[in-house]
């Protein structure tokens, strides 16, 4: 891992990355999707990433019928820029082509709105907002303290109270986002994989997952991972069959 990092320190400058990116885009545009996959993956080895890069790589993988990696990279792109319509669209589009689908109850409009709002900002955006609000709280509180009863102190008080309220809300939101981001999400990368009841090859097979299906990691042991699916099912999956988002 570190050795490859060393090998690729040479291409960490932005211009180099952009040049590789242009080559990869050209390969994609001309329809040479395997080559595009090759080149995009090359950029990722530099240790740098970008929503556009993950998105393009996801698309390229879909074009060569690799649903698992396609979903993996599109999900990563969405994590970086959750509000991008193209990313969400392609992700939904690609997911339709999974061979297996979970039986999920239809979500109500209210739940959908709540979820899209919850995922509206990235953790970094929330952290920045939190910092700015905190500075606003500090400044207004100091100004107000000095101007108590003076001219404009009422306005200052309102600004202080509003920013404090926003600060508390954002803090809560940031904690929520942090916890969501800290959960390890996985995508199934092999065509078909059996989910066991215990981290042992001989244990009972509970169900089967197909390439591109997602889950959340609950526990890890040597070579196995306990995952939970969106429909609530849990089971142990060999780690070679999955990749973390």
């Amino acid at each position: 891992m570190l050795v490859t990092a060393l090998l690729f320190t040479a291409i960490t400058s932005g211009a180099d990355l952009q040049r590789l990116m242009d080559d990869a885009d050209a390969a994609y545009t001309s329809g040479n999707f395997p080559e595009a996959v090759n080149l995009y993956s090359q950029i990722l080895k530099s240790g740098y990433t970008s929503a556009v890069l993950e998105y393009n790589l996801g698309n390229a993988y879909f074009k060569i019928d690799e649903i698992g990696p396609a979903i993996l990279h599109l999900e990563r792109a969405r994590r970086l820029v959750p509000r991008d319509e193209d990313i969400s669209f392609n992700l939904d589009y690609v997911k339709v082509y999974r061979k297996g689908q979970l039986d999920l109850p239809e979500k109500s409009a209210l739940v959908k709105t709540f979820e899209s709002l919850r995922n509206y900002f990235t953790l970094n955006e929330l952290a920045w907002t939190l910092l700015i609000l905190w500075l606003a709280v500090v400044t207004t509180s100091i100004l107000y303290w000095f101007r108590r009863g003076g001219r404009g102190s009422k306005a200052l008080l309102y600004v202080f109270l509003t920013s404090s309220l926003l600060f508390i809300l954002t803090a809560g939101w940031t904690v929520d986002r942090y916890r969501l981001d800290s959960r390890e999400q996985i995508v199934v990368m092999t065509d078909e994989v059996q989910i066991h009841s215990a981290p042992v090859e001989t244990s009972k097979v509970l169900f089967i997952l197909r390439e591109g299906m997602e889950g959340t990691v609950r526990e890890r042991t040597d070579g196995w991972c306990e995952i939970k699916l969106a429909d609530g099912k849990t089971g142990w999956i060999p780690t070679h069959a999955i990749a973390s988002i």
């Binding site: 990355l17 545009t29 740098y48 970008s50 556009v52 890069l53």
Partner: peptide
């Protein structure tokens, strides 16, 4: 794919 606007972050 998007041809522009790749902002690279660690």
């Amino acid at each position: 794919i998007k041809l522009q606007g790749a902002k690279f972050v660690p």
